[in-house]
């Protein structure tokens, strides 16, 4: 407790109202997630006893996940999503780090026009139809690259990163430069190790973007065997509960007996949640430090 001496003591009423409001807000975020995960882990009996989503833990089982991972649409879509996320994030992060460093020294050759080119993209998007025409004329329809390349560089991320690099005192890099280190080496050996937080945050932004990508996939992928998880989630959970039962009958899930369909649906939702839930706590502590300094200065 670090209350300054001049501050009034909080009244008991004020403190409890505040506590209640905060508790409600936290519950509003966590409760739906809890219910979804719990339902995905429940047996058919538990689900039908609850008459829908399970709120009180009953009999638990991994049946839904076993069914999903037996092969078929969902397994494949997870592989697609993971692949696109890993490749895309690596590409985006490399390109962004390089350009952020390349643009971090005002007065270097072509610095102003290139920076202007980046900043101008804030003012207008490329437009849905011309983008589609471009992607299709590049022959990227039904290619996973269509999910990566058009969104590979985000001007916002680039600008945040650049602002962070510009805050590193020039004295730090100057000595290495006098010793004859190349710019690539300075970036790799000096600047990046000093920028772990911001790199983690920008990496998370990109990764989440790729993992969550939905519309580009519906737009650019006609071949439904290439669908990423978010599209599968929409098709089977959001769009039609009966459609899913039809899909389980054939090869989609493998020829097993039908597990509770709601549990399977919630298992798909959970699988879409998990990567975010797992990576997020490691990056969260860098948010204020890494992002805001950059955002406010940029």
């Amino acid at each position: 407790m670090t209350m300054p001496a001049w501050a009034e003591r909080p009244t008991r009423l004020g403190a409890s109202v505040k506590g209640l409001v905060l508790a409600l807000i936290v519950a509003a975020v966590l409760f739906p997630i809890y219910m979804v995960v719990l339902t995905s882990l429940s047996t058919q009996e538990a689900v039908s006893k609850a008459g829908g989503l399970v709120t009180v833990p009953g009999e638990l089982s991994f049946g839904a996940y076993e069914q999903l991972f037996a092969g078929g649409v969902v397994t494949r879509s997870i592989a697609v999503s993971l692949g696109v996320t890993v490749v895309g994030t690596l590409l985006s992060l490399s390109v962004t780090v390089l350009a952020a460093y390349g643009l971090s020294r005002p007065g270097s050759l072509l610095h102003r026009p290139m920076l202007f080119l980046v900043l101008l993209t804030f003012l207008f998007g490329p437009g849905m139809i011309p983008s589609y025409l471009l992607v299709s004329s590049l022959g990227l329809i039904d290619s996973y690259w269509a999910l990566i390349l058009p969104t590979a560089v985000t001007a916002f991320n680039l600008v945040v990163m650049r602002a962070f690099f510009m805050n590193i005192p020039e004295e730090v890099t100057d000595s290495a430069r006098i010793d004859g280190a190349s710019e690539f080496r300075i970036l790799w050996r000096i600047v990046l190790p000093m920028s772990k937080g911001v790199t983690a945050v920008i990496g998370l932004f990109y990764a989440v973007g790729y993992w969550n990508a939905f519309f580009n996939a519906t737009l650019y992928l006609n071949d439904n065997t290439k669908w990423p998880l978010q599209v599968v989630l929409r098709q089977f959970v959001l769009q039609g509960q009966s459609m899913f039962v039809g899909q389980t009958g054939d090869t989609a899930i493998g020829g097993h007996a039908l597990p509770p369909s709601l549990a399977i649906q919630m298992a798909i939702v959970t699988l879409a949640l998990i990567p975010v839930l797992v990576i997020y706590p490691f990056v969260q502590k860098h948010f204020t430090k890494g992002v805001i300094i950059g955002a406010v200065k940029g």
């Binding site: 390089l98 980046v118 993209t121 969104t151 970036l187």
Partner: peptide, 16 residues
């Protein structure tokens, strides 16, 4: 070298 580093990002932004 700085120019070389910036080229991929600028290229992607120009193209897309």
């Amino acid at each position: 070298q700085l120019l070389l580093m910036t080229v991929p990002a600028i290229g992607l932004l120009l193209l897309f």
